[in-house]
């Protein structure tokens, strides 16, 4: 039932922030919805990229991915609340501490569990579900069941002719874009990226050429988790930290990777924009719940036409 009240709060939240008090005409309203959608899309691209990277290289699905997102948000709350003082300092600290801690948790999970089941796809899924509930319960016990707000590090409004828009949200989009570019650069121009692509193409051949495949696996799993954690930190000033907040990003990331095609990074980013923008727009005009339902129906439609997704290969 907590889930429900949270949804209602989110809906109020949306109407509070997105919809100005006076009635807007359709054009500006559409523009506002588009802005909201674009911000959602950038954060979603970041989250889903982590999931897609892990699947692409390791051929496993991390069901606990949303919990890494949630941990990022919760750790951001701890950083800002415990540090006090300027929200800017706490937030900057969170941007460093949260991904590092979450990455460490992911490394531990990889070493203690995933390695031992030999990255078998089904066992890994069951194991990450187990991880999901352990993390959720841990946060519920330590952090508590209530949603807690985190103050945005900077507050300014960008004024458009029809409404003012939260400047922080635009910064979120910009930072996400930077991180996406950074990930692309790391994949295409660094040695680690080369190792990752080699492992993705054929891990046995890669191993024969001296790629430390096991270490690449651990690194990729941690990197995927860190991307989710950063997305969680970035979104928390807009959304509040809550122990169940990982479910929506997990669902949306799943939708995105299936539509884009499992394992295709390009497909993931393209689908994140399609789903993110439409999700944002339906959320503003109707409701966030309806947006998720419609996105799932879109998946059904895509599966009928292309069972491997829009950019998918045949190696699932």
């Amino acid at each position: 039932m907590r889930e429900v009240s949270r949804r209602r709060r989110l809906r109020q939240h949306h109407s509070l922030y997105a919809r100005p008090a006076n009635e807007m005409s359709f054009g500006p309203h559409l523009f506002l919805a588009f802005l909201e959608g674009t911000v959602t899309a950038f954060v979603l691209a970041l989250t889903a990229l982590g999931l897609s990277l892990v699947f692409g290289v390791m051929r496993i699905v991390n069901v606990a991915h949303g919990e890494f997102f949630m941990l990022g948000a919760v750790l951001a709350w701890y950083c800002t609340a415990l540090l006090g003082g300027s929200p800017m300092v706490g937030f900057a600290l969170a941007l460093i501490v949260a991904p590092l801690l979450v990455g460490a948790i992911a490394l531990a999970a990889d070493w203690l569990v995933l390695k031992r089941v030999d990255y078998n796809p089904e066992s890994t899924i069951v194991a990450t579900i187990g991880l999901l509930y352990i993390v959720q319960q841990l946060v519920l016990t330590v952090f508590g069941p209530e949603a807690r707000p985190v103050e945005a590090p900077i507050y300014f409004r960008v004024s458009f002719p029809w409404f003012g828009y939260s400047g922080y949200k635009l910064i979120v989009a910009a930072l996400s874009a930077l991180l996406l570019l950074g990930t692309w650069y790391a994949l295409s121009h660094t040695k680690l990226g080369l190792y990752m692509r080699a492992t993705q193409q054929d891990y046995e051949i890669a191993q024969a050429f001296g790629v430390p495949v096991r270490r690449v696996y651990a690194t990729v799993f941690a990197l995927g988790a860190m991307l989710a954690a950063v997305a969680g930190v970035l979104i928390v000033p807009v959304q509040q930290a809550h122990y169940l907040m990982g479910l929506d990003p997990l669902l949306l990331s799943f939708i995105v990777v299936i539509i884009g095609g499992l394992g295709s990074l390009k497909g993931t980013v393209v689908a994140a924009f399609v789903i993110g923008i439409s999700d944002g727009m339906v959320s503003v005009f109707f409701s966030p719940t309806l947006a998720k339902i419609l996105a799932t129906l879109l998946v059904a439609a895509v599966l009928v036409v292309r069972p491997n997704g829009l950019f998918g290969d045949n190696r699932t």
């Binding site: 699905v61 479910l247 799943f254 299936i258 499992l262 719940t289 799932t296 069972p307």
Partner: peptide, 24 residues
Amino acid sequence: RTTGVSFLIVTMMFGQACYLTLLY
């Protein structure tokens, strides 16, 4: 129509969509 892990993801996704439909 999906195989392997895609089937898992699709079932989870639709399970959650049904849940959201009940709430909606």
